[in-house]
């Protein structure tokens, strides 16, 4: 399995856990096209608000730590502050994770 596929599997597992805390209409789909967050410049509407985005990213970080070691840091605050497109959808988030590993 390639690194990208491994990360995708970890992220999808995190989505399963995250969805337990979400009501039906806010549950994320396990799809690379799933839009996460709405922000100026993004054309599609995401399911997460600023609070649930934090919960989601912390869940992903926990899953990555289980696989890569406790020292793995997703740099969540930087990610949230960034004006970049890492949070646009699942695919862009996976690319970001691959980049920082």
């Amino acid at each position: 399995m390639s690194d990208l596929e491994k990360i995708k599997t970890i992220v999808f597992n995190a989505i399963d856990e995250f969805n337990l805390s979400q009501e039906i209409e806010n549950k994320l789909e396990k799809s690379e096209e799933e839009v996460l967050f709405s922000r100026a410049g993004f054309t599609q509407v995401g399911k997460l608000d600023s609070l649930t985005l934090v919960y989601f990213l912390v869940t992903i970080e926990e899953h990555l730590q289980k696989n890569l070691g406790d020292s793995f840091n997703l740099k969540t605050q930087d990610l949230i502050d960034s004006k970049e497109v890492e949070l646009k959808n699942i695919a862009s988030l996976i690319k970001y994770i691959q980049h920082i590993i």
Binding site: S21, V54, V58, T59, E62, T76, Q77, I80
Partner: peptide
């Protein structure tokens, strides 16, 4: 051991891991 989560607290003012809420 992970019931309290400092990261969640500073990022979102949520003191607990989601499993506590579950």
């Amino acid at each position: 051991g992970n019931a309290y989560n400092s990261k969640l607290w500073y990022l979102s003012k949520t003191p607990f891991h989601s499993s506590v809420f579950a």
